[in-house]
Amino acid sequence: MANIISLNGRIQQKQAVEQTQMARRKALALRQAFRCRRCSNICEKCGLEIDENELLKTRPDHDHEVAIPYRFCESCTEEYLDFIHRLQGKGKVQYYWRNDEWLETWRRWIDFQASMDRYVRTKAFVQLVDEMQRGASSE
């Protein structure tokens, strides 16, 4: 009888492993969704750290007709403005490397940001955040 393996013990052990894996997956999903997207000192496009003074300074080349809905470093701000101006038929033509593929990368990056914004507002994602907050508060 001592050699008989307890099925209940195995089932409980397997469930504990599955629960641990599920908790890890949930935490990773949250981390990926919020991966410094809302950090106030990080460029949302390239991830470069932004000096607080840089955020406050005004840009002489920004005509203020173009809203900048993202937090960018100086380089990405300049690229974003050029991207918007090119869509309007303007832009800096001397920057020959900013070609159709460059425009496409910006379009796709902006589409990705919009998609992530929609995703974090979904019922399922909000439920995940609530579950993780409840789990963290009960620990």
Rank of each mutant, 00 (worst) to 15 (best):
I4E: 10
I5A: 05
I5S: 05
I5R: 08
S6V: 03
S6G: 04
L7A: 10
N8I: 07
N8F: 08
R10H: 09
R10F: 07
R10P: 01
Q12R: 14
Q12C: 09
K14N: 10
A16G: 10
E18R: 11
T20E: 15
M22C: 09
M22T: 13
M22W: 11
M22D: 12
A23F: 10
R24L: 13
R25T: 11
R25F: 07
R25N: 15
R25D: 15
K26F: 06
K26Q: 15
K26N: 14
A27G: 08
A29V: 06
L30S: 06
Q32W: 08
Q32Y: 08
Q32A: 13
F34C: 05
R35L: 14
C36M: 12
C36A: 14
C39W: 06
C39A: 15
S40D: 14
I42V: 14
I42A: 02
I42S: 00
C43K: 01
E44V: 10
E44R: 12
K45S: 03
L48H: 06
E49H: 06
E52A: 12
E54F: 04
L55C: 03
L55H: 02
L56F: 04
K57Y: 00
P60I: 03
D61Q: 09
D63A: 06
H64E: 15
E65N: 13
E65C: 07
A67C: 09
I68D: 02
I68F: 00
Y70D: 00
Y70P: 01
R71I: 12
R71K: 14
F72V: 04
F72Q: 01
F72S: 00
C76M: 04
T77Q: 00
F83C: 02
F83P: 00
I84V: 15
I84K: 05
L87I: 08
Q88T: 04
G89L: 07
G89S: 08
G91A: 07
K92N: 15
V93I: 12
V93Q: 10
Y95K: 13
W97E: 06
W97I: 00
R98Y: 01
R98L: 02
E101F: 04
E104Y: 04
W106S: 01
R107H: 09
R108L: 08
W109Q: 01
I110N: 02
I110G: 03
D111N: 07
F112R: 12
F112H: 14
A114F: 05
S115N: 13
S115V: 04
D117M: 11
R118D: 12
R121T: 08
R121K: 15
T122S: 15
T122D: 07
K123V: 05
F125I: 04
Q127R: 15
L128R: 05
L128M: 09
V129W: 00
V129Y: 02
D130I: 11
E131A: 10
E131S: 11
E131G: 09
Q133H: 10
R134G: 13
S137M: 15
S138V: 15
E139T: 09
